[in-house]
Design a protein around this nucleic acid. Structure first.
Lengths: 122, 122
DNA sequence: CTTTATTTGGGAAAGGCTTATCGGTATACT
DNA sequence: AGTATACCGATAAGCCTTTCCCAAATAAAG
C-alpha cells in the first residue's frame, strides 16, 4: 500500500459512505460506480491491505461469508436482513451477555446477531 | 430413511451423548468409534436425513461451517472455544436482545455467541 | 517528459465444504 | 434362508470464496 490509486480511494470512500458492513461483492458493486473497470482481485487485495493498515476489520455473521467495516467503532452488534441480505450496525449491547456462564467457561468476547427485516424491505 | 442401519444408529447416539453441537468432521470421528468403516458421505447424507426427520437442526456460528444439534432444545445460545474449536450449549438468554433496535428494524430472531476458553482447555 | 516500480484486471487455480455417482453390501420382508 | 432394494463407502465432481499469475496500465520520482 504505497501508492494512492483511484481504486483504493474508491474502496475507502465506499466504506465511509455505507455506514454498514460490506461483503466483497458489495464493495465491488458500489466501488464500480466510481471506477467502472474495478476488478474483483483488486477488491480482495485492497480489503486485506486496509485491514493490515488498521482502516477495516472483518465481521463474521452466522452462516455468512466475511464482511468488513470501519475499525474503531464503539462496541456494537449487527442486524442481518433476511430479505435483502444486507448487514447493519446496531448501537449498544445487552450488557450481561458474558455473565451467567456455566462453571469453567472463561469468556473473552461475544457476538450478537439479530435477524429480521430492515427498514428498506417490505 | 427407511432402514435402521448401524451407521445411522451410531450417528444418533453420538449426538445424544455429546450434548453439544457437532460439525460433520466431529460426527465422523466420534461415530467411527462405534462403526470404524464409516464414510464421510454417509455422515453428510445422514445429517441431512436427520434434519428432515426433525431429529437435528443446523447451528450457524460466526465464521464457522455449520454444526448440528438436537432439535427441540429450550431457547439457548452457544459458546465457541478459541483453543479447541468445540461449540457448547449455553442455557438461557439475555432477554432484551431484540429490544432497542433503531426504527424500522423488525426482529424475527437472534443469535448470541460467546467466545473464550472452555473448561477442558488451559 | 521519461523512467521505474507498484498496481491493476482477467482468468486460472487453489482450498474447503458438500453433493453426486456407482458397484458392492446389508437390511427387512417373505 | 432367499431376494429385492435401500444403503454404504470411496472417489469424483460441484460450488463458492479467495488467492495467484502476468502482461498492461499508471502513480510517483527525477
Amino acid at each position: 500500500m504505497e501508492r494512492t490509486t483511484r481504486q483504493r480511494q474508491a474502496i475507502r470512500e465506499v466504506f465511509l459512505e455505507a455506514g454498514r458492513p460490506l461483503a466483497p461483492k458489495e464493495v465491488l458493486e458500489l466501488a464500480r460506480n466510481k471506477v467502472p473497470s474495478l476488478g474483483l482481485a483488486t477488491v480482495y487485495r485492497t480489503l486485506r491491505a486496509l485491514q493490515e493498515e488498521g482502516f477495516l476489520v472483518a465481521v463474521y455473521l452466522p452462516g455468512e461469508p466475511p464482511r468488513y467495516e470501519l475499525k474503531g467503532l464503539d462496541h456494537h452488534h449487527h442486524f442481518l436482513c433476511r430479505i435483502c441480505g444486507r448487514a447493519y450496525e446496531l448501537p449498544g449491547c445487552p450488557a450481561e451477555v458474558e455473565r451467567y456462564l456455566p462453571p469453567g467457561f472463561r469468556p473473552e468476547g461475544h457476538e450478537v446477531t439479530v435477524y429480521g427485516r430492515c427498514p428498506e424491505c417490505p
